[in-house]
Each structure stands twice: as C-alpha cells, then as structure tokens.
Design a protein around this nucleic acid. Structure first.
Length: 480
RNA sequence: GGUGGGGUGGCCGAGUGGUGAGGCAGCGGCCUGCAAAGCCGUUAACGCGGGUUCGAUUCCCGUCCCCACCUCCA
C-alpha cells in the first residue's frame, strides 16, 4: 500500500507519488516571529514532524524546508511600541528592542519550543530577510508578464493583479466575485481591492533598517512572497508537498500559489493543512485570551506527554484542549512506556518494517494517527498479557514493535527534561531508600498500619511507590 | 453572501452499508496484607426528520446547531 494524502487543492485523498522517486521535497510554513510560540504553532510542527518521520521510515529522503518570517507589519509594530512613551514592559516584551532583535529573540524561543517537543529541525530554515534578491527576481518576472504592477499612488508598493490570473481562487475554490471585501481594505493604489502586496514601499517613520532598495523603490517584502521565493530556491519550481495551518489556506497559500503559478512554476503537488487547536472547542487566540502556551503545557506534564497529546488527534481534525487533557495523555503514555520497560525490546530498526501492518496501513491512510495509536495500545495489551503468561519472547517482540511505533510517532524521541544530576537527587534517593527499608521492616513485622503510613507520607511528597516481584520501585510523579 | 470541515458513549477520538476502533474515566473479578501496576470481564454513542435498501451511524434529501477561512494568524 502506498501513502495517501489529502490534498487541499483537489479536495481529495490521493496517492502520493513524489516527483523524484525516493525523494520528497516538503515546504511548510513556520512562524512569524513576533511573539512567543503558542500551542497552534507546535501542533502544526508536530503534525509535519510526524509526516516527515513517516516518510523517512518509509524509505524516503526528505528535503524539508520551514521558513522564518522575520520581517512583517506586526514585528515592526511590536518593536515600535517598545520605543513609545507609554510602553509598558511585559514578560514577552520587557524592554526597548529593534525589530531585528525582537525577531531574533522569538526565533530562538520557537527553536526552544520545537526542540523541547522533539520536532526535527528542517534541513533548511531560511529567513525572509535573507532572500530579498530572490523576491525581487520573482516580482520582476511577474511585472514583466503583466501579473504585477507598481501602485498608482506613488507609495512604492507593488501589487499582484488578481484579475490578470484567471485561476485565482483555485486552492480554496473561491470565486473572486463572491469574496467578501475586507471591511478595512485599503484600496490605496490598487486596481482591485483583492490585489495583494508583493512589495511594500517604505513609509516615513518606519526604521531605515527595515527597508531594502529595489527597482520599485526602497521597501520590504510582502508576506506571501517570501514563501514562493524560498520554496522555489530550495526545492525548485516543482516540489512535492506544501504544508501549513488551516488558517493559512487563504489568503496566504492562495496568494503563494497564484504568484508562483503566474510566474510559470508548477509549485506544490500536494497542499496539506493541519487543523486548529481549540480551548474546549473555541479557537485559541491571543485576542480571546483563552490560550495555553507550550511553556505552560511543559510545566504541567512531561514533554513526551505533551507531544503525545498534540499528535493524538488526526492532523486535519480540530484538536480540543481542556484542563485534564495532558493528564489523560500522561496516563495513556505511561501505560505504553511501562510495558516497553518491562518487555526489554531489541534495539529497534527505524523503519516501517518494524511495526505491525495495521499501523502501516493507518499511517499510509492520510496519517491516521488515532488509528495507529489504537494499534499501539493493542500491541501493549497483547504484550502485557504475554508478560503475565511469562512468554518473554512474545513480550520482547511486541515490546520492540511498540518501541518502534513510539519512535516513528516521535514520542520517544522527545528529550527528557533534565532532572537528574543535581546534588538534591542523591539526597532524595537516600532518604527515600531509608523510608522504604523502614517500610519493608514494618511489613515483615506485619505492622501494616506503619507500612501504609510511610507509603502515604511518601505519596504526599510526590513519591509514588509500587511493590513488584523485583522489590519496591519508586518514582517522583511530575506535574499535577 | 461565498468556501471548506464538523455534530459518535461521562470525556477525548477513529471508522464503517450488516458481527459497532483505541484512550481516559467508571464498575465487577483475578493478583496484593491493603494498595499500585497488569490482566480478564463489563456499562455506554452515532444532532433531528424523511428517503433509498433485506438492512444506515455510514448513501440521498431536508432541517437545526457548531467550527474555520474570506482581515494578521499554525
């Protein structure tokens, strides 16, 4: 069975055939680095990370590219606000900061969040500001072919002429005539209100550092242009997959497609979009204030559990977060991990050969992770049964499969938060061992009241204990 | 107004024209001094109204509701 993926443009699940056998070229939209990452960013990153890992497990060489939008209106606004007289410092924006410093700082915050969740770094991670030359070439090409024009109001803007491109709207199957005009659309020097900026002329008051010379006057790139320019540079005029959040379909991806296609490029064969994360069903957004940040999630549960949670729904589905979600993920994950630890799996092969056919089928079916997880849980149950029956060979085989599934989903690849190593650890260990030996003595003396009191005492301190045939095991329960 | 996607058991969340995933939570049992972990069993769902069909949660029509996008957004 081959991989099938849902393509937004054709609105159907299709067989995935890469342009070049054995290789996959993938571009997915990263963040505009104007603030700290929120859960939606990392959900998207996890979704495409799972895609990449599955492609690699299936034997493909994946050339992945994720952009960093490090120049845009919001970045300039946030920076400019930090220099305003009424500036109120906040944790995210603590001090006066030039736009490029602000962008750089948040770019690093994004890396931290991605790394903490085991998201593989893309092969290339180009910044918009590093590709002005490529953007100019693309604009010129569009101007020359009659699909773009300099603004008629002398602003220095250059717009894409949507009416010059008959296919405009094809990605989201929208009819230009029936689109709702943006209520705050600024017609400026546009031929049509829906024309979008390829290049934004420099305005007085904006920092000089945010302006680049161009044939149309000094200015800075429009948002959509960078992705077209960079995807083409790193992946070619035709490539396999373009991804991003559902909210990017329009206008961002629609415009990307229009400008690239109008420039004569084939562009992406497949358009993939991940669903939104909601807070109890409502869209999370800063303006609504119902957000939970990746940082807050990581404070509440182990990184692996956070990753499990973010990946557990189908990537195209809405992912509902609610208080308790992370604890549920933690419980499910612990069951898997405990089985694997008891099964002593072989060193696993990192490929689709190491997982059950049902798991392969689920993943091949447009990355049906929920169904794949069902296979994983069934494997765990079968493995536990084997352990109970002391069938160690079967348990080990199932353990290897479970470990491999966890690895392909990227969950076991999430780095453990560093907790060990401090001098406190040794002290804690000694104290716990001391109490456990007291408890063992009490148990031996059949003084169960005292034994249970010790267990309760440890529990109230967050130390969880478990009597096993190999003796009493203990662990510190993380989070709430 | 346009476009896309939804409404599944207490919660999360797949899927299918006929024997109704999986997880979390709950209940009963085994195990345990009691627990924990694990195993076994178990409770429980397909928005509403029609239609097609031997049979629909799955297809069709209607209807209600929800979400996203059409403005910066993963």
């Amino acid at each position: 069975m081959t991989l099938r993926l849902y393509d937004t443009r054709t609105a159907q699940v299709r067989d995935f055939q890469p342009l070049e056998p054995g290789k996959v070229s993938l571009y997915y939209c990263g963040a505009t680095v104007q603030g700290n990452p929120h859960v939606g960013h990392v959900r998207s990153a996890v979704a495409f990370d799972i895609l990449i890992r599955w492609l690699e497990a299936s034997g493909y060489d994946v050339l992945s590219v994720r952009n960093v939008t490090d120049i845009d209106d919001k970045i300039l606004e946030k920076s400019s606000a930090s220099f305003a007289e009424d500036f109120q410092p906040s944790p995210d924006y603590p001090a006066q900061e030039p736009w490029f410093a602000l962008a750089y700082r948040f770019e690093q915050a994004f890396h931290q969040a991605y790394d903490a969740l085991g998201v593989l770094r893309p092969r290339y991670e180009p910044r918009a500001t590093g590709h002005i030359t490529e953007m100019h070439a693309l604009i010129q090409r569009l101007v020359d072919s009659g699909h773009a024009y300099p603004a008629t109001d002398g602003s220095g803007d250059v717009y894409f002429d949507v009416r010059s491109w008959a296919a405009y709207g094809e990605l989201t199957r929208q009819n230009l005539e029936q689109m709702q005009d943006a209520p705050d659309a600024d017609p400026r020097g546009k031929r049509d209100p829906r024309d979008f900026a390829l290049w934004k002329g420099h305005k007085s008051g904006e920092p000089e550092t945010a302006a680049w010379d161009s044939p149309w006057g000094p200015g800075r790139p429009g948002w959509h242009l960078e992705c077209s320019a960079m995807a083409t540079k790193y992946l070619g005029e035709d490539f396999d997959i373009h991804g991003g959040g559902l909210d990017l379909r329009f206008p961002h991806h629609e415009n990307e497609l229009a400008q690239s296609a109008a420039a004569g490029h084939g562009f992406a064969q497949f358009w993939l979009h991940n669903g939104m994360v909601t807070f109890e069903g409502e869209k999370m957004s800063k303006s609504l204030g119902n957000t939970i940040s990746p940082e807050e999630m990581l404070a509440e549960a182990r990184p692996k559990a956070v990753r499990y949670f973010l990946g557990q729904a189908h990537y195209r589905s809405q992912l509902v977060y609610k208080p308790g979600s992370l604890q549920e993920a933690e419980a499910a994950l612990e069951r898997i991990e405990q089985f694997i630890a008891r099964a002593h799996p072989d060193s696993t092969v990192d490929s689709r050969q190491g997982v059950p056919p049902a798991f392969q089928q689920a993943m091949d079916d447009d990355l049906n992770v929920p169904a794949a997880l069902a296979v994983l849980h069934e494997t765990v149950r079968a493995g536990n049964t084997a352990l109970d029956n002391e069938d160690d060979d079967a348990a080990q085989a199932l353990g290897s499969q479970a470990a491999e599934m966890l690895r392909i989903l990227g969950i076991s690849e999430v780095p453990e938060p560093q907790t060990a190593g401090g001098p406190g650890d040794a002290a804690l260990g000694q104290l716990v061992e001391k109490m456990l030996s007291s408890r063992a003595e009490a148990k031996a003396a059949k003084d169960f009241a005292r034994a249970d009191a010790i267990r309760d005492q440890l529990a109230s301190a967050g130390v969880h204990i478990e009597d096993t045939p190999q003796g009493t095991q203990w662990s510190v329960k993380s989070g709430g």
